[in-house]
Design a protein around this nucleic acid. Structure first.
Lengths: 204, 204, 204, 204
DNA sequence: AATGAATGAGATTTCATTCAT
DNA sequence: TATGAATGAAATCTCATTCAT
């Protein structure tokens, strides 16, 4: 019966214990607001409405929580970008780029705290925070390489550099924009980013 | 040039006490290596071969040292970029851009630790590290605005976004490159960055 | 022997629930390996394959388990020593001593973990571990006193001191030997201990 | 001038900072009274009249203090035993043994807390306390080996076992006696121990 | 100006114990 | 009986900062 599939889905999403979820949620908020070094396990536990011990039952330390948040966020983000890319697979290159940039911006709008953690705070990293967790430029790099092999973009461009550059450009622009959104509207932001994307900007 | 300029220069570069310089030097190294939150005043003092007390005689706290290092580095960097720009003032736009990108890369090569502090660790920022210290995209933004007003670049580009995007792109690309320099040579790096610069990439 | 003795024995040896036995067994091992303060109830429960709650269902706390283990071991040891003594009751003094020393060594070989707990860890004792649990020198003391009254051993020997001294000597020698058994064989160990026993060594 | 020699001596005895000495002193008392696991760094620091941080400035942790105390005590004890042995070098064997046993007992009387730490609490050892610090039976073992080679003691005795046995016997007897000194006087204690010493008890 | 021992507030972490299931 | 997530009191430890020399 279909009821089974529901509980199956539930199982797949692993309720992971309410406390853990609460900690993840509250931790994301607090770390994004005050910086990773600006909060401590105690504060996060209290804010999540659980005991300190509960924090350590679920996470080895503050940085483990950070890694969990960033890891999760990253997975979701990459999935959404891949999805956007897939949907626009048949569209012209410009449309494809716009689709992923747009998905990126929407993700940032939907999860600003997680987004900040992924792209700004996690970068600085604390003493133990040097998680190898970062948004991977690999997808863009591969795309650029393919386009270049295909003669569609400037052969003088190095795909590895361009991919890293655009990843940072996009992240930084969006971080700035969600902090100060009054400078321009979302479509203008996306439009600008699309035109800065190597695949668009360096079309040969 | 007047005689005064000599003593002026002396005054500006005055060692400010050997201890202070040593602390600045060693502090930059340590913070770049281990992250701002990964070192403490005691460690830096010890490494600099001075007493803890001496640290606090020269800097209010760890973040004051960070601000001093980043402030100094930023001044030097902006000065070098301005200089490069001035020297290439008469050259075609592409050459101007190449001149500043090249100056940027050279700065990173000459002072990798200071560069890392300015562009990666300061970003993450500790509790009190969030000084308004950052490489200002203002110069690029103004330049783009002027070019746009002049009809030389795509009017759909938002200069504020583009300036921030390129600043991050350039910094991130260079950070990556000084960590893993074997991927490509310096000229290829510069070349790629030039072509990603909004003034070049979005020429209308 | 009556039929009753069978069910009595059953009752005495009643597994007392499998969990309890498992905890006792695993707890003995862990405490002997890592020291009483080196393990906690959670660890012991986990290692025994039961829940923490189950631990507390059976033992008031860690020290209750320790007391149970040591108490049990002590009872068994004293019983075996008494048995050996009884069996050798008619033999000459030297044989009697050898019989108990031999029984002591065999006990240590058969239950090294329990032996260690009884004679080394319990000695150090944790905050609450200082239960009056220890191998009683009373039997030896009484024996010495009787021999002394009988003029068979040196009157200058204090039985209380000698009994405590030999108890410690025997325990320590055996503890050392089960850790580093390659120094000498079992019979040589026993032989040496026999000759150090006050009743043998201080014969008048 | 002679004043110099005074300060020289002072220098040799290294004041080691008053705090450190205070901690060592108070720590020894407290650990001996309540057991190593019965006190914590905070308590010891307070009792020593210094701040918590001062504790950690001088000792890595509680066990480092324990090791320092035991190490120091052990050095002093071994030195005193060696001295006693040297002074009685020309005396008959029995007198030599009496001299060291006597020195041992006097040490215990003079420094009961240190003595307890060395011989009982340190043995149990905490999670991290497994210091390889213990009274070495080596001196006695060597002496026995020499006597045995010389045909003066029973060849059936294993010197390693006998040395360890006597070390434990002596320590345990004295520990018991300083706790309950009313059972017998000091001389009787010493007399009994002398007669239990392998070199005396197993004379061939 | 230089020093480094001392400090204690606060962060981190452990673990015995409870309790709802 | 059994379970194990949750708890928080208490222990451990760090580090920015002061201050007497």
């Amino acid at each position: 019966m279909s009821l089974i599939s529901v509980s199956d889905t539930e199982a797949l999403r692993r309720p992971e214990s309410e406390s853990r979820e609460k900690l993840l949620l509250v931790g994301t908020q607090l770390m994004a607001e005050r910086g990773v070094e600006g909060v401590n396990s105690n504060t996060m536990a209290r804010a999540a409405g659980v005991g300190v011990g509960t924090f350590y039952r679920h996470f080895e330390d503050k940085y483990a929580l950070l890694r969990a948040v960033v890891g999760r966020g990253l997975e979701a983000l990459q999935a959404e970008l891949a999805e956007a890319d897939r949907e626009a697979a048949e569209a012209p290159l410009g449309e494809q780029v716009r689709a992923t940039v747009s998905a990126f911006v929407h993700f940032a709008l939907r999860e600003p705290a997680g987004f900040r953690l992924i792209f700004s705070l996690a970068a600085g990293g604390g003493p133990r925070g040097r998680a190898g967790l970062g948004f991977s430029p690999r997808a863009i790099e591969n795309r650029l390489r393919a386009l270049q092999a295909d003669g569609q973009i400037d052969p003088a461009i190095d795909p590895a550099v361009a991919a890293r550059a655009f990843t940072a450009a996009q992240a930084q622009a969006v971080l700035w924009w969600i902090q100060e959104p009054d400078h321009l509207d979302r479509e203008a932001l996306i439009e600008t980013l699309v035109r800065l994307h190597p695949a668009v900007a360096c079309r040969s």
